[in-house]
Amino acid sequence: MIVLFYNRKTKNRISTAWMYIAISFVVLLPFILGLGLYFKSSLLFSENSLGDLLFSKVWKPSIGKFGFLTFIMGSVWVTFIAMLISAPICIFAALSITQYSKKFYLKIIHPVIDILAGLPSVVYGVWGIIVVVPFISTVIAPLFGAQTMGYSILAGAIVLSVMIIPFILNILIEIFRTIPIELTEASLSLGATKWETIKYVLLKKALPGIIASLGFGLARAFGETMAVLMVVGNMVQIPKNVFDAGYPLPALIANNYGEMLSIPKYESALMFAALILFVVVMVFNALMRMLIVRYDKY
C-alpha cells in the first residue's frame, strides 16, 4: 500500500477518484435530503391527505390527528413581519453604504455586518429574552393597549428581522456594487442629482436583485429555529395579532424531539414538518436564483 502511495500515477488516480466521489455526493445531497425526509414522513401520507395535513388546524397527536395549519400560520406570521421590518432597513442601508458612505465609515459598518452575520442563533435568542421580550411587554404592548408577557409573534419577528438583516444586506451591497459606475456617471452628467440617479436608474437596474435578496432572506427567516423558538411563546394557536404567542414549524420540530418516539407517527409528523421547510426553502431559493440569472442576461 505504501509503495502504491509513492507511485505518482496511483496517487493521482486516488485523489481524482476521491474528487469524483466527493462531488457526486455533494450533487446528490439535495436529492438525498428530500427523498430521505419524504420517506420518513410517508407513514403520515398513508392515512392523511396532503390537503388535510396542510390545511387542517386539528393537532392531536395522541389520536393521530396532524393538521399543520397552526404551525404554518405561525411561521408565515413571524416571517412576514420580520420581512416588513428588515426589508426597508436593508435597502436604505445598502444604498447609503454603496452610494454615500465615506471610507472610514465602511471600515466600521462592514465588521458590524460581519459580526451580526456570525452571531449564533442562540445568542440572538438570549438577547431576545433579555431585551426584546421585556420591551414588548412593558413598552410596546401597553402602547397599543394589549397585555402580553412579551413572548409573542412580535418578539420572534423582531429577533428574526435582526438576524436576517446582515444576510440580506450583504447580498444587496453586492448587487449595488456590481452595477457599473458608468451608469451613475451617465445619469449624473445628464443633470440628475445623486438621489434622482438612485431613484430612477440604480433601483430600477437592481430591482430583480432586490426582489431576489428579499426572497433569500424570507427563505432564511422561514427556517430559523432556535432564536425564534426562545421568544415566540410556543402555544398551539393561530395568532390573531402580533402580541399573541405563536408556534412556528421549526419550533415544533425542535420542541418535540424528545417525545417523538413515544407516539406512533409523531416522528413521521415532525419529519413532515421538516419536509415542508425543506420544500418551501428550496422552491423559494430556486425561483430567486432563476430570477437573477434571467436578469443577468440583459
Binding site: E182, A186, S189, L190, G191, V201
Partner: peptide, 16 residues
C-alpha cells in the same frame, strides 16, 4: 454637469 454631455468608452444605456 448639465453643461456637459458625457460619452464613455462603452455605451451604458439607462435601464429604460
Amino acid at each position: 454637469r448639465k453643461k456637459m454631455g458625457l460619452l464613455s468608452q462603452r455605451p451604458f444605456p439607462l435601464p429604460m
